[in-house]
Amino acid sequence: MSDGAAAGLPANLVVFERGWLSSNNILLIGADETALVDTGYATHADQTLALVESSLGIRPLDRIVNTHLHSDHCGGNAALQQRYPALLTDIPPGEAALVEQWDERGLSFLATGQTCPRFRFTGLLQPGTECVLGGSPWQVHGAPGHDPHSVILFDPASRTLISADALWESGFGIAFPELAGEPSFGDLAATLDRIEMLGPLQVIPGHGRVFNEVGSALTTARRRLEGLQRDPVKHARHAIKVLMKFKLLEVQSIALDDWKAWIRSTPYLDAIRSRFFADAELEQLAGDVLHELIVAGAAEMDSSGIRNT
C-alpha cells in the first residue's frame, strides 16, 4: 500500500499495489465522496473489500471507476456493489451495451477463460471530459492499444497519471486487438505520445509500483513496441504464455485433464493459434508454451498435475 503524500501523489490518494492476478486499486478520499479506480480480480474480491474497509473505516465507498473491462480490473465490482448498495459505477462507453446485456463473450471473459461476476454500471467515462474523484477533477483520455475502449486518468494539479495498462514502468499490456486481426500497434504508439504530451510527474500503473521516471518508461515502452512490430508472432506467443500463467495464478494447481480441458475451452487461445501458428495443433502449441514456463521456473508439472510457482 502506497501513501499518496509519501510518493508525491495527492495526499487524499492511496494506492493498493496488488499481485499480478489483480490490477492495482487507487482509492481517493474526498470530503464528500470516496472513489476506487479498478477493483482487481474476482478471486481476490475479499482482499479488495478488506483493503477498502481498512482505509475507509465506517465511511462507505461511493463510486467505482473502471479504466477498462478486463477481468483483472473489474472483477471486484460485484462484491463491492453488494457491500455498498448505493455504490455508483462508471465505465468507459465502448462496452456499455455488453455490460447491460451481460454478454460475456463480447466482454472477453469467456474467450480468455477468466471469471468476472456480473455487475451493473450507472455512468460512463467519456474521453475528453472530466470526472471528479476525491474532490478533484481528473481528465479522462482515451487510451486504445491494449484495449480499444480503455481510458487513462490525469490530474493536472499534481500531474499524476493513472495509466492502467497503457504504460508500466517496464512496458505495457498485451495489444489484444492486434491478436484478433485489428491493427492496434499504431494505437499503442499514439497513446504513448498522448502520455508524453500530458507530461505526468508520477504514474500509477495498472500493475507494479508507482514510478516517477516517466521518460525512461516511455523509452522502454517504445523500444518494446518497435520489437513487437518487427515480430508480431513473438507478441502472439507471449500472449498465450500470459493467459496460461494467469490461469495458474488463479487456480495455483490443476490436474492435467482439467488443464487440457481449459485449453480446449478457451476460444482466445485457438484464435491466436489459427492466426499466427496455423500449422500447429493447439495442444502441442500449449504444451510448448507450458514447457517454456516450466524452464523459466514459472510452473511445475508432474503426474499429479501443474502447479504455479
Rank of each mutant, 00 (worst) to 15 (best):
L87D: 15
A180H: 00
N308P: 01
E281I: 09
E95S: 04
A97P: 10
P205W: 01
E33N: 01
E283C: 09
F16L: 14
I306Q: 13
E196C: 01
A6P: 02
S54N: 05
G206P: 00
G199M: 07
R105S: 07
D288Q: 06
G134E: 03
L13M: 09
L56W: 10
A255F: 07
A6Y: 01
L69S: 00
L80K: 08
R120F: 00
E169R: 15
L21H: 12
R63T: 07
R59Y: 03
W20S: 04
V233S: 15
I306E: 04
E300H: 10
E213Q: 14
L21C: 10
L225V: 07
L27Q: 06
E196Q: 12
V140L: 09
T129R: 12
L87R: 11
H70C: 02
G134Q: 00
K245Y: 08
E292H: 06
E300Y: 11
G227L: 03
C131R: 15
I58D: 15
W168E: 05
R230S: 10
A239M: 09
V289W: 02
G128H: 12
P93W: 00
L198C: 09
E213R: 09
L124C: 07
L69F: 05
E100D: 14
V15N: 04
I26D: 11
P127A: 15
L61T: 14
F246Y: 15
M197E: 07
L21R: 12
F211C: 01
